[in-house]
Design a protein around this nucleic acid. Structure first.
Lengths: 349, 349
DNA sequence: GTGAAAGCGCTAACAC
DNA sequence: GTGTTAGCGCTTTCAC
């Protein structure tokens, strides 16, 4: 291990000596704890500034809080997550908490390892974004540390909170929009079955999508939902299979933007015109949707607000709330050129 | 703070008792330290498994290592960074180290806060990706913890390592390609001057780009490098200004892909055809470049390899190396439809 | 309102 | 090879 200047470290003891008070007094000032006079608080604060003292987090963690919250993200490639992160930053602004991120890489075992590592490092709370673990696993983690999940519906969970949009409604919105735009053979491309679990948001969107088509009079075999079983790299193959099938769809719903962008790429590569030959709709209304070259209709789930709410819930949990709270926001469709079949407006150059 | 079951925590002491050995012995097994018999190691390992013991990182950090490395990222929106992260994961695979990420949000004060927080949490080492701090600041941090920087050239730095591609060469490659493709009025859009510093990779790319044009006989006033002074949101306005200027460029180099994708969007929104009216080239060869709708020519800087090397360098530093090492890889152009003026191949549908 | 002192779970001397 | 023990920098009783 690299050498660290031992003698120079400013500790709580250094500050106490400089201010001429006890270590305990400094600790209290540090934690804004009850029972210090204004005079002492001032003296201590001045010494801390003078010595530019920074409390040693690992040491704090041994007895109390570390003021660190962990954020577990499913991956780094989903363009929707930065919106959530912005919301988390909003929620943390003005507090002492600092977010530290881990990347689960779509594997529940990696996720588990990261969660353990974070708990072992004494984080005060954990926000999980699009994680793959089952609700029962989450209950277990929740007994060790306060958690809030995003992108996982568990309305009955008591031991942890959640923040989501109404994914069933979102799926329905897409189907309704497709039909309103004059598309007649809607299809959906979704997450592979391998990693599916009942709480998964993709499944909720599928249900909303399918239910809306049923309501519109579609027969079961005309409700086409294809899954990209080998993940993101499998989307192109899945699209191709769909486009070569007897009843070729005329509109495709990608369960999330980062899938829909792949769909867009695949569809164009195969020579179809968007939106005339094929309408395409995503979910998340993430930043790339607005690019002229994508011009992707998408469902906005208000990620920043979700991030904000999740953070609020987490801090409340850390402070001691034990009753569960599940925040849900209603999504909204943002129409762009990729689904404008009726108006005939083409997109791009 | 939420209650944590105190009595149930399995500590090193619990393991020691269960295995019938001393605490020190368990600690040694834990650290793979010298001086334990095979029999004891086995016994201890079995007890650890049986009790599913997990060492308490904060406590470890008070005396030794935490086996955590920090990764400071400039932001979450740059599509190139996931490549680097993949490389870091490669480099860390098979070690005990876990990466934890912080997001600097393009602000050197936020970066500083995160670095401090990470150091206070006793991370063993730090990888900084595209950070905005000056070399002198890095020297200061390097005296507290081993660091490796990515996307910051400081070939003379002794106290820390770096991993980069040759950005000057990369800039030159772009200019050469533009001329070879028949473009006659190349321009570049780069980072705003506000956050520019001499080590910045964007500046290196500018230099390579300008030098190559000079070598090709361009006069100073024909070498056009525009900066988006208000950041990413300013790119569209910058592009518009460029396209409305008297000597309109016929090719634009975006200093990084996430800028180039904005350029592509702006150029198309203004009604220009790519690549015929306007060639566009990015830098990083990140995932979105390959999408049919982007089809963006870009410079590949082998991010995954850079991430791998950075990790290797960091671990060596943590293990005690004090001599600096600066890794540099040579970039390569990946030609796609956005710069194919000569062949006339259009892109997209 | 303030301070002394006992840990928190580990690591690393050092003694055996 | 193995065990004993003194801390690491804090927080938190509990006296005063």
């Amino acid at each position: 291990m690299a050498p660290r200047k031992k003698s120079e470290r400013v500790t709580i003891r250094t500050v106490a000596e400089d201010a001429g008070v006890s270590v305990a007094a400094v600790s209290k000032v540090l934690r804004d704890a009850y029972g210090v006079s204004d005079a002492m608080r001032l003296k201590v604060r001045q010494s801390m500034d003078k010595l530019s003292y920074r409390p040693h987090s690992a040491a704090r963690g041994m007895r109390g809080q570390t003021y660190t919250v962990g954020v577990l993200m499913a991956d780094m490639k989903n363009p929707f997550f930065p919106d959530l992160i912005d919301g988390i930053d909003d929620g943390l602004a003005g507090t002492q908490y600092l977010p530290l991120f881990g990347v689960g890489r779509g594997s529940s075992s990696v996720e588990r390892a990261i969660v353990h590592a974070m708990v072992d490092r004494q984080i005060d709370g954990l926000i999980m974004i699009g994680q793959r673990m089952a609700t029962v696993d989450l209950e277990g983690i929740a007994s060790e540390v306060p958690i809030v999940v995003i992108g996982h519906h568990a309305p009955d969970a008591q031991s942890f909170d959640s923040a989501n949009n109404d994914d069933v409604r979102g799926g329905a919105i897409v189907a309704e929009h497709m039909l309103a735009q004059g598309y007649r053979r809607p299809a959906m491309i979704t997450l592979g079955r391998n990693d599916l679990m009942s709480a998964d948001v993709s499944q909720k969107r599928e249900r909303g999508f399918a239910d809306a088509l049923r309501s519109a009079g579609f027969a079961e075999h005309d409700i086409r939902i294809a899954s990209a079983d080998d993940g993101l790299d499998d989307v192109t193959a899945t699209v191709r299979a769909l486009l070569e099938s007897p009843q070729r769809p005329d509109a495709i719903f990608g369960w999330a933007d980062y899938y829909a962008l792949e769909v867009l790429s695949a569809v164009r590569a195969l020579g179809f015109r968007v939106p005339d030959d094929m309408g395409i709709i995503g979910y998340d209304n993430s930043a790339p949707c607005a690019f002229t070259q994508n011009n992707l209709t998408s469902v906005d789930q208000f990620g920043r607000e979700i991030g904000r709410q999740a953070t609020r819930l987490l801090i409340e949990r850390i402070k001691g709330r034990t009753q569960a709270e599940h925040f849900v926001v209603t999504p909204r469709l943002v129409a762009r050129g990729s689904s404008m079949a009726v108006t005939g407006a083409d997109q791009g150059a």
